[in-house]
Amino acid sequence: MSEEKKVMTLQEQLRADLIEMYLAGDITAAETAQSMEVSLRQCRRLVSRYRESGRDGVVNLRRGKPGNYQLKEELKTQAVKLIRTRCRGMSPTGAWRLLNAGFGLSISKETVRKLMMAEKTWVAHPGKIP
């Protein structure tokens, strides 16, 4: 069996460098996330994965597998309308439950969270990165 050596892509190397700068205290978590073009939550996960690797091996620092499902425009319009009227002041999980159980819309929690953030009916509260 031949063992293939994994090589980091340029994007992964840049992300690793940004994480190193963050861990050294040179930049903040928000700056790290913004530079990597990911959310603070995704940045936390990447930092955690980087720490677990021990910094000696190649770590998959990609954002993840791209989704192949696109929300249909009519479903999105209906969900946004309900979020604006019925889900104001609710958390994304509560809104997701209402949309799925109360109105029969089959949408993921993450999609509801993104729609609520886009409509400014919910603001993510940035937490501390460990």
Rank of each mutant, 00 (worst) to 15 (best):
M21S: 13
T121H: 07
L10F: 07
L71A: 09
D26F: 03
N60L: 09
V58K: 11
Q34E: 15
L115N: 05
L99V: 01
E119W: 02
K65Y: 04
K72M: 06
T9I: 00
Q11G: 00
A124T: 13
L105A: 04
G89M: 03
L14Y: 09
R113D: 03
A79V: 08
V112Y: 10
R86D: 13
S48Q: 08
L18T: 10
K120E: 14
S39E: 09
R55Y: 07
R97Q: 12
N68F: 01
T28N: 02
S48L: 04
E52C: 09
H125N: 11
W122Y: 14
A95M: 08
D56M: 02
Q70F: 10
K65A: 12
T85Y: 00
E119T: 07
L82I: 10
T111L: 13
M36N: 10
A24K: 15
M117A: 12
G127W: 04
W96M: 08
P126Y: 10
M8I: 06
R86Y: 05
R15A: 06
A124H: 15
T9Y: 00
E110H: 04
R86S: 14
A95P: 00
T85W: 00
K65D: 03
R88I: 02
R51M: 12
R55D: 09
L46Y: 05
E52P: 02
Q13L: 13
G94V: 00
P66M: 06
R86T: 04
E37Q: 14
A95T: 06
E74V: 01
P66R: 12
K114M: 11
E12C: 11
T9L: 10
M90D: 03
L75N: 07
F103G: 02
R88N: 07
S39F: 06
Y22Q: 08
V58W: 11
A30F: 09
N60G: 12
A95F: 02
G57A: 12
N60D: 15
L99W: 08
G102P: 14
R86P: 00
E37Y: 04
N60M: 03
T77I: 09
P66L: 11
T121C: 09
R88A: 09
S53M: 04
R97A: 07
S108C: 06
I27L: 07
K65P: 08
G104I: 09
D56F: 01
A124Y: 15
E12Y: 09
F103T: 01
M116W: 02
A124R: 15
C87F: 02
A101G: 06
K72I: 13
V59E: 05
Y50G: 03
R84F: 01
E12G: 12
P92T: 03
T77N: 08
K109Q: 12
A101F: 05
G102D: 14
S39T: 15
L18K: 02
A118K: 13
M21A: 14
R97E: 09
